[in-house]
């Protein structure tokens, strides 16, 4: 089954009194990479769990190809892959067997199983560890095992919930490359949540910034940044650092020179925007 578009309408999830996801709507086209940004507790994981069928919405509808997800779960689940926030692998069995169980659960037939497992192993570059117990892998390798597992049944949509959290810079880059490769080679639609804003800037075509269950901004990284300007002036005061945003470098320099403290000018980052709009809310 091909998924050409995903549409989310008025999606809400309540845990008792707490509204974790608050009436959000958006749509996504095939082959996009969507980054979901937001502070702890914004509702990112809850949103992903609803999109993958792990949670049922309190209100609202998710359409995959204009078909209501709650009415066609099995079909859609076949083409969804999830890398959850926590590595939920079986620690006491081998890497290979972790993948084998997944292959059986996804109904990959006996003859094709081995090939699918080999491909997933080599894609995530963990062939050398296939007979090791999953528990013996380092954090980075465990993450790659989870990615291999999510890719095993060749999903058309891949959800990654903080895929690079707790990883060293090398492993992070490694995972960025996987994500790009997955997206390029098979036009896989990718959802990724992250706290690393530069990750979103680097990978995403579209960014959704969430806070307290709502989408407070969305658009391409460029479009979002241009709301504030192009350059950031960092002003080093004696007890704090302040930020000012400008559309061109000259304005920024002029402003800085009038101050009697040191300053630095750099390109405006997505993080500047993120801090600005989420900070306002947290106050």
């Amino acid at each position: 089954m091909e998924i050409n578009n995903i549409e989310v309408k008025d999606l809400t999830k309540k845990y008792n009194d707490l509204v974790a996801v608050d009436d959000i709507s958006f749509s996504v086209r095939k082959g996009d990479i969507i980054a979901i940004l937001g502070p702890n507790g914004a509702g990112k994981t809850t949103l992903i769990k609803m999109l993958t069928g792990l949670l049922s919405p309190t209100k609202g509808i998710i359409f995959y190809n204009n078909v209501n997800f709650s009415k066609s779960q099995k079909k859609v689940k076949k083409v969804i892959g999830l890398v959850p926030q926590e590595n939920n692998i079986d620690r006491d069995i081998s890497v290979h067997n972790n993948l084998l169980i997944h292959a059986i659960l996804y109904g990959i037939n006996y003859k094709e199983r081995n090939k699918a497992i080999m491909e997933a192993l080599s894609f995530a570059e963990i062939d050398d560890y296939k007979s090791k117990l999953a528990n013996e892998l380092s954090g980075g390798l465990k993450r790659r095992l989870v990615i291999a597992r999510a890719m095993l049944h060749k999903p058309k949509i891949l959800f990654l919930d903080e895929p690079t959290v707790n990883l060293d810079p090398h492993s992070r880059r490694h995972i960025w490359n996987f994500i790009r490769k997955i997206n390029n080679e098979s036009q896989t639609t990718i959802f990724i949540t992250t706290h690393y804003i530069e990750e979103a800037d680097l990978l995403a075509k579209n960014v959704l910034i969430m806070d307290r269950g709502k989408i407070i901004a969305s658009g391409s990284p460029e479009k979002l940044k241009s709301r504030l300007g192009s350059f950031t002036l960092e002003i080093f005061k004696s007890d704090s650092i302040e930020y000012q945003f400008f559309h061109n470098r000259e304005e920024a320099i002029q402003f800085g020179e009038k101050l009697n403290c040191s300053f630095k000018i750099r390109e405006l980052s997505l993080e500047d925007l993120y801090i600005k709009i989420t900070g306002k809310r947290i106050e």
């Binding site: 099995k74 969804i80 959850p84 692998i89 079986d90 659960l105 996804y106």
Partner: peptide, 14 residues
């Protein structure tokens, strides 16, 4: 604890 159960819930099975 291990959240393996989610693997069953997300799989395309009844």
């Amino acid at each position: 604890y291990f959240k393996i159960f989610d693997e069953y819930l997300i799989a395309p099975i009844g």
